[in-house]
Design a protein around this nucleic acid. Structure first.
Length: 541
RNA sequence: GAUUGCGUAGCUCAGUCGGUAGAGCAGCGGCCUUUUAAGCCGUAGGUCCUGGGUUCAAGUCCCAGCGCAAUCACCA
């Protein structure tokens, strides 16, 4: 136990519900002989597996035999499968000498039927008194009830864990989003669809790894604690190492380390990386988020485009298969997944459109005709247009008038951004005003960019230096020149393609989740503890 | 950061014109060997987010704050 905490300082006034549960815990232990916090159990069947062992023939044969046995006084032959299961109680109905309850595990729900005549007296008392939320272990034949519900007819039960906390409502579950995020452990058992999203996320990440591994990429792990937070333009979290007495930053991107791997000779690397950005929070931004960065020596942004298209298509196809296996409606037209009101079609090839072309369609003028561009900007009433650089006006117009033209229902690569708004990207050899970069948009969200990476150390140094000049005082505290990275480039990095994909956002799309908080197990919320400890102090004073 | 909405029993939610707090589930007690969201009967349960204000009277109106959500902005 920890030393005195604010919570210990004042006795917690437990609700009547908790008091009743504690009383039951004591009764189970002292009167009925069931240890409320049990031990290892071997040979368990998942509830879905147990259900699958149900045989109507065996059930009918036993039922008939049991009726005859009752008349003749003999014993009924029983060929029903015996299963051992465990799960959390999510429904409980006490019918007197017969108790029905539903157990839930990660595979689903299964009814447990406990007949007073089939089990010892203490176990029957346990079944009657068990609470919503308790975890039970039960053994018995798998059969069904008169109403047709497949169930385990328990011949023995024991308590695995007594739950003391008041449970959520058994039909509506936990629906307040704040409670679902703060008490995810309750959300996950009370709302099975929530738990399903996280299981799907796990399978998606596995599939991404298999895909990358099959293509010969090495998964590597690079520093999260960095002396300089580089590789992206974002505010980092700061921390400190005591023994080294050294300021450190949580990484905002693994890019500069992964490129060092290329210098070292790893030709194809990726990292599924947690990044930390000290910025705003909304439906598609969490302060810590997972991305995958990929670098391939001797590739370019086109290589990354093919890879991304195959990967996203592959995941989408597997999700369609999952939906089909789960009995959900699937679209015969191909890999189509619902996302909110949308139906997104992940069929290859994805849409490819050049920035310049989309600009012309959306804005109606040539992006290189700055007079026309500025006239258009004034025409739509853009603020401070005169103060902005030509290319910044282009960028603003693009965001306002061209991006909305991207079909949210089709994954779309927007390619060849203007060099002026992508300072760290390699200009195209044939047309230096644009650069070898694309962004992929799906469902109106930006999922990630890719680049033909810059590997000329002199140009890289010049661009870094230029970027530092633009930094204000606050920025300069975390924007420092990574000289070691420049040294690495001087050693020589092969030409390469690089890619970053937002895994959380991809999972949102694949699982039909509206908010990034629905695909992050424990999203960051404002702490309640500050307010509570203030309250405690106030009470004591 | 701005705007809007929400915050009432453990959970899900009502609460009229400002008149002093309601339901269902969960809980507790009783009955019952076939329930399926909730078997039947009974019973108990409240910091109405917090703090001020207006009023004879505030869950309700006003102000400030806290938390959550949505939209926008910012950031990518």
């Amino acid at each position: 136990m920890a030393e005195t905490t604010p919570q210990d300082a004042v006795p917690l006034s437990e609700s009547e519900i908790v008091a009743a549960r504690r009383a039951k815990l004591k009764r189970f232990r002292d009167e009925l002989g069931f240890e409320p916090y049990g031990e290892r159990v071997d040979g368990l069947h998942a509830l879905a597996d147990a259900r699958a062992k149900f045989s109507e023939d065996a059930h009918v044969a036993y039922d008939t035999a049991a009726k005859q046995a009752k008349l003749s006084g003999g014993t009924a032959a029983d060929t029903r499968a015996i299963v051992k299961v465990a799960g959390r109680i999510v429904q409980h109905r006490d019918m007197g000498k017969l108790v029905f309850l539903f157990l839930r595990d990660s595979s689903g729900d299964l009814q447990l039927s406990i007949s007073k005549s089939a089990i010892d007296a203490n176990a029957f008392e346990l079944a009657k008194a068990a609470d919503y939320g308790d975890i039970l272990v039960a053994e018995g034949p798998i059969g069904r009830t008169q109403k047709g519900e497949v169930c385990v007819w328990a011949t023995s039960i024991s308590l695995a864990t007594k739950s003391l906390a008041p449970p959520p409502e058994k039909w509506h579950g936990l629906s307040d989003p704040e409670q679902r995020y703060r008490r995810r452990y309750v959300d996950m058992y009370a709302n099975p669809e929530s738990a399903k999203v996280f299981a799907m996320r796990s399978r998606i990440v596995s599939r991404i790894r298999r895909f990358m591994d099959a293509r010969g990429f090495l998964e590597v792990e690079t520093p999260v604690l960095q002396p300089m937070a580089g590789g992206a333009a974002a505010r980092p979290f700061t921390t400190h190492h005591n023994t080294l007495d050294m300021p450190l930053f949580m990484r905002i991107a693994p890019e500069l380390y992964l490129k060092r791997c290329l210098v070292g000779g790893m030709g194809k690397v990726y990292e599924i990386n947690r990044n930390f950005r000290n910025e705003g929070i909304d439906r598609s931004h969490n302060p810590e988020f997972t991305a995958m960065e990929v670098y391939q020596a001797f590739g370019d942004y086109g290589t990354m485009m093919e890879l991304t298209e195959s990967l996203v298509n592959n995941i989408a196809v597997s999700m369609v298969a999952e939906r089909e296996a789960a009995g959900l409606r699937v679209n015969a037209d191909g890999p189509v997944l619902p996302w909110g009101e949308m139906e997104i079609n992940y069929a290859m090839p994805f849409v490819r459109v050049k920035f310049e072309e989309l600009f012309r369609r959306g804005v109606g003028v040539d992006m290189r005709d700055f007079a026309a561009v500025r006239a258009k900007a004034r025409a739509i009433g853009m603020h401070h247009e005169a103060k902005l650089d030509n290319w910044l006006v282009v960028n603003k117009l693009f965001e306002e008038l061209a991006e909305p033209l991207i079909d949210p229902l089709r994954p779309t690569f927007v390619t060849d951004y203007p060099s002026a708004i992508s300072p760290l990207t390699r200009p195209s050899r044939t047309d230096p005003e644009v650069c070898e970069r694309w962004d992929i948009f799906i469902g109106g969200m930006e999922i990630g960019p890719a680049y033909t990476e810059l590997n000329d150390p002199d140009i890289q140094l010049a661009k870094f230096t230029e970027q530092l000049k633009g930094a204000d005082d606050e920025e300069s505290t975390f924007r420092t020149l990574d000289e070691d990275f420049i040294d690495a480039l001087r050693v020589g990095m092969p030409p390469a393609g690089g890619l970053g994909i937002g895994i959380d956002r991809l999972v949102m799309l694949m699982t039909d989740s509206a908010s990034i908080r629905d695909v992050i197990l424990f999203p960051l919320l404002k702490s309640m503890s500050a307010a509570e400890s203030t309250k405690v102090e106030g009470t004591q004073a």
